[in-house]
Amino acid sequence: MKDKNVKEIKEIIDNLSSDKYLEYIDILRLDERKSVQNIAVKMAKKLDSIRREDERLEAINIFENEGYNKGYMYIGGIDEAGRGPLAGPVVAAVVIFKPNTKIEGVNDSKKLSESRRDELFDIIKDQALDYGIGIVNNEEIDKFNILNATYMAMKKAVNCLEKNPDYLLIDATTIPGVDIAQNPIIKGDLKSISIAAASILAKVTRDSIMYQYDEVYPGYGFKSHKGYGTKEHYEAIEKQGITPIHRKSFLKNIL
Rank of each mutant, 00 (worst) to 15 (best):
V6K: 13
D79G: 10
S199A: 11
E11V: 07
Y234D: 06
S115E: 15
I200F: 03
F222W: 05
I209G: 01
E238H: 06
N15T: 12
G76Y: 06
I9A: 05
K187R: 13
R117H: 02
K45W: 04
K248Y: 14
K111M: 09
N61K: 09
V216S: 01
V6E: 09
M43I: 07
P85L: 11
R247L: 12
E238F: 00
A149T: 06
G71C: 06
I170H: 06
K46W: 03
V204Y: 00
K239T: 14
K187M: 05
K226D: 09
A128T: 09
L201Y: 00
E11G: 03
I175F: 09
V95N: 04
N183Y: 07
E162V: 07
Y167G: 01
D214G: 15
E232S: 12
A157P: 02
D214E: 11
Y21L: 06
N61M: 03
S194V: 10
F222P: 00
I185A: 07
D171I: 14
Y72H: 14
A197K: 05
I175P: 10
S18Y: 15
E53K: 09
S249N: 15
E140K: 10
A198E: 03
S115T: 13
T205L: 03
G67H: 01
G241W: 04
E80Q: 14
V36I: 15
T243S: 08
V178D: 12
L147M: 11
Q182A: 01
G77E: 05
A149W: 03
T150D: 08
I62Q: 14
S115N: 13
K248P: 04
S224V: 11
F250V: 13
G105W: 09
K2Y: 15
A87R: 00
R247Y: 10
D108T: 04
I75A: 07
K155I: 15
K2C: 06
G219Q: 11
G177E: 13
K42S: 15
Y68H: 10
I78K: 01
D179S: 15
E139D: 14
D26G: 02
A172L: 14
I170D: 00
Q182F: 03
R52H: 13
E232H: 07
S18P: 13
S35K: 12
E32G: 05
L169I: 10
L22E: 15
E55V: 02
Y211W: 02
K252H: 08
D207V: 02
E238I: 00
E66N: 08
A149N: 04
E238D: 10
E235T: 06
L201I: 03
R116S: 10
Q37P: 03
G227E: 12
K143A: 13
D179M: 09
M73N: 12
V94L: 06
F222G: 04
